[in-house]
Design a protein around this nucleic acid. Sequence first.
RNA 1: GGUGCAAGCCGACCUGUCGCCCAGCAACUAUUGCAGGGAGGAAAGUCCGGGCAACAUAGAGCACCAUACUUCCUAACGGGAAGGGGCCUUCCUGGCGACGGAAAGGUUACAGACAGUGCCACAGAAAAUAUACCGCCCCGACCCCGAUUUUUCGGAGCCGGGGUAAGGGUGAAAAGGUGGGGUAAGAGCCCACCGGCCUGAUGGCGACAUCAGGUGCAGGGCAAACCUUAUGGGUUGAAAGAUCAAAUAGGCCUCGGAUCAAGGGCUGCUCGUCCGAAUCUCCAUGCUUCAAGGCUGGAGAUAUCCGGGGUGGGUAGAUCGAUAGACCCCUACGUGAGGACAGGGCUAGAUAAAUGACAGGUACCUCCGAGCAUCCGGAUGCAUUCCGGCUAUAGGGCGCGGAGGUACAGAACCCGGCUUACAGGCUUGCACCUUUU
RNA 2: CGGGGUGUAGCGCAGCCAGGUAGCGUACUUGCAUGGGGUGCAAGGGGUCGUGGGUUCAAAUCCCGCCACCCCGA
Length: 120
Amino acid sequence: MDVKFPKTERLHSRKLIKELFEKGSSFFLYPFKVICLPYPSIETNQVLISVSKKKIRKAVCRNLVKRRIKEAYRLNKHLLQANKQDKQLIAFVYVSSDSMGFDEIQIKIRKCLNRIINKK
RNA sequence: GGUGCAAGCCGACCUGUCGCCCAGCAACUAUUGCAGGGAGGAAAGUCCGGGCAACAUAGAGCACCAUACUUCCUAACGGGAAGGGGCCUUCCUGGCGACGGAAAGGUUACAGACAGUGCCACAGAAAAUAUACCGCCCCGACCCCGAUUUUUCGGAGCCGGGGUAAGGGUGAAAAGGUGGGGUAAGAGCCCACCGGCCUGAUGGCGACAUCAGGUGCAGGGCAAACCUUAUGGGUUGAAAGAUCAAAUAGGCCUCGGAUCAAGGGCUGCUCGUCCGAAUCUCCAUGCUUCAAGGCUGGAGAUAUCCGGGGUGGGUAGAUCGAUAGACCCCUACGUGAGGACAGGGCUAGAUAAAUGACAGGUACCUCCGAGCAUCCGGAUGCAUUCCGGCUAUAGGGCGCGGAGGUACAGAACCCGGCUUACAGGCUUGCACCUUUU
RNA sequence: CGGGGUGUAGCGCAGCCAGGUAGCGUACUUGCAUGGGGUGCAAGGGGUCGUGGGUUCAAAUCCCGCCACCCCGA
C-alpha cells in the first residue's frame, strides 16, 4: 500500500491553486473546509493544506496542525485511490481556532475523503 | 547545609515502524540500494548598525531625521567596557552653625538656560525686568494724652515725603547660606567660614581633580518645550537584482501561393478593361545649394488570406542571488569590552514553503498512598556506626507504587547588537543564616 | 519584508500638538410631568486614561520598552 507523500502529490502551482479556489466546489466538515475540483489532465491527486494565521497565531502550533493533517491524509489516501475516478485538486482549510490531537484529525479526514468519493 | 543576587552553560534522552527536505556513491535509469546531514538561545519583536544589490550623484547651503560627559572596543552602531561628574541610602567623623571629610552600596538620555523665544496652574506681596503690599525706621504738618508756668520733653493716632529688603499664612521652587560686626532701621554694607564665578599652575590621553590668587557675587527651574552647537545620514530593499525561457495570441523581417486597391470613366448589375492620387525605398548624364537637403525623371513596393522559415520583447516555469562566514574553539596581550599569530573544528537551505506521526521505555518536576529512620543519653577525636530508653501531632529526608506534566518557542539573503518570553537543571563568585571543628 | 494608526465611563468619541479642571452624546439610577407607557425637564452615579518604567514640582498629554487590535504597500 502506498503511504508516501512526495512533492508531485502536493499542490504547489500558483495557477492551479487559483483555479481551484475560483471554480472548485466546497463543503464544510468541522474543523475543515474542503474544496475539490476534478481535473483529468493531471497524473495524481494533488492536495493543499492550509491553516490560517488568524485562527492559530503561534507558528509552532500552526506547523504542528499542518503536519498532523498531512500525516492523516498520507495514511488514509488509499481510500481515494481505491476508486477509479478522475484525478482531483483538493484543498483542506483548517477553520478551527484551537489545535486538535492526531486521532481526532484522522477520524475527520476519513469522513472528508468518504464524502468526496460519494459526491461523484 | 540552606537562602538570595550576579555571570556563564544546558534546555530532555533512547529504541522500533512509517514518512518529508538536501546533497554523495553505486546500480541503472526516472526508479532502487547504501552510508550522511537537517531549527534557536532567543530562530520571536523588527528597535538600531553593517555587508550585498539596483538606481542616483559637480560643489555648497537650506529643510528633515538621529545622536549627545570622557577615553576605548568594533566592519559599524543609538551596542558594549573602563573611567569621571551629579543624585540617593547606610555608617564613621569634624564644626556653635551653614556645611565639610572618609568608606560601602545603588542610580544616572549627563552638550548648551549671561544666543534668542516660550512656559511655571493653585496659593502667595512677589514666579524673574524685583524696585512692589503688609511690616520696620527717619523727617515734617495736624490733633489728643501725660509731665511742666511757658518754652520744651515723652507717648499714641492720622496724613504727606523718604530709607529699607531683616520678617511675612503660601508654594515644587522666594533672589547665595551660616555666625558675627555694623546701622535710625537695614542690606555683601564690612569680616570669617561654606558655596559660586574668573585666572593661573600642577597631575591626567581626556572627562576632570588638586592647589594658589582674584572677585562681594547680574540674579530660580524646564531643552524627554521650541531651539543653538557639534557629529552622522543619497534613495530603495532579496517580491533588491541577474540569466535561460515552453505553449497560445500578437509585433517585426523574409520566401512561396491566391485574391487584388481608395476614387473615377465604359455599364442597369457582376465580371472585365482603362485612367490613377498618396507614402516608402533605390538609381540618375538633370536643376539649385558650401553642405545637408529639396525639385524633376525613371524603376519597384504597399492591402487581405493561407502556408513555411527567422527574430526581438516577455508570461507560466526554471536557475543564480542563497548559505564558508567581520564564523567558532584555543591562547599571547589587555583592568575590561575585546583580541592577533599558529593550530584545530563546524557548516540547515526549503520556496503554497522540509526537520514529523505513532508505540514503548528512561530521566526530571508536582500531587497522592502506605513504609523506614527522626528525639534523648552513653561509647569513639569527629562523622559513619553500635547499645539503651521514649513514642502524639506537624514538617522536611530516603527509597517504592500510582496519576499528571516536561518551558518559551519554528530558520526564509546573511551577520553584529538591543528588547521581550522561558518548566527545570548544572558550574563559578559574592553576601547572609545555621551546624561542627 | 517594509510603513502607518488606535487603545479614555456599558457603547461611540473629544481632550494629547502647546503638561496643572478628565468632558460630550447615548445607556443607567432617582425625582417631576402623564390615568399608565413613550417623549420631555431636572438632578445624580459610574474612569487603574491598555501596561511597565523615566523626565518634571506635577503626565491621559512629553520620552523609552512591552501588550492587544486595525489599516496600507509589494
